[in-house]
Structures are given as structure tokens and as C-alpha cells.
Amino acid sequence: MRPYPDGGAARRKEDPKALAPVPGRLGTVYRGGQGQWAWALHRITGVGVLLFLFAHILDTALVGFGPEVFNRVVAVYHNPLIRLLEMGLAAMVLFHALNGLRIVAIDFFPRLADRHQQLLAAVVSVWVLLMIPTTYFMGRLLVRSLR
């Protein structure tokens, strides 16, 4: 639960000192358990995917400069190191998607909150299950690019 859904803006206006920073501690806290890790991972993967999206819009936009420029730029994606990052991107997107569905399920069907641990176990299980073929498909191209 985020204690301040607006990020504390209204509370801060009421009393500027109420949300004064505590040295050595980040602003938002969660009440612990697996949910805390899922919540933190959701934020981290979300920000990570957004940063990639910015880069991806830029590289795709270069298609407007014609084949020579665009083909030279997308060749970056054939670099083995970038392929490894691409696998990391897949892992982040997939976790964010599955965990997001869990959040939506609990928010729209509040009784599911009683089963939140099983739901998170399902998220992690499906993530592992889907990462196996994903790793295989991308891994085979990565191995081939090394030869």
C-alpha cells in the first residue's frame, strides 16, 4: 500500500515538515514480505523498460533517413553483448507484464488478496516457464552470432 497515492503532494501542502526526508532512507516503504519485493521489482523493471522504449523510438525513427543509415544503426542489435541485454529486456518486460496482471486481478477482485502469496508464486512460475523458450529462441541466435 502506498500511504500517499499522490506521492505526498497534498500532505506536503498541508504540512511541509510532515514528509521531511529521513536521512539514509528512501521515501516510499512497503510493509514487507514477498509483496515488497514484487513491488520493488515492478518499479525497477518499469523504469528499465521505459528507458529502453525511449531508445527504441529513436532508433526506429532513423528509418526515415533511408536504408543505409537505418541498416547501419540496427546492426547494433546484432552485437552479442546487445543480444544479452535484449534477453534481460525480455526478462524485465515479462515480469512487469505478469506481475501487472496480478496487481490488476487483486485490485479488480479484492477477494483474491487472500490468495496473494499463491498469485505471486504463479507469477514467478509462469515467468520461469516462459523464460525457458524465450532464452532458447534468443540464445540460439546469440550462439550463432558468436561463430
Partner: peptide
């Protein structure tokens, strides 16, 4: 149940 709900559900604004 209630405590779990408070802990796990994101309250809708």
C-alpha cells in the same frame, strides 16, 4: 483476511 487485504491491495484513489 482484512489485514492481508490492507497490506496487499493498492487502494484506488
Amino acid at each position: 483476511s482484512l489485514a492481508t487485504r490492507e497490506r496487499t491491495q493498492t487502494p484506488a484513489p
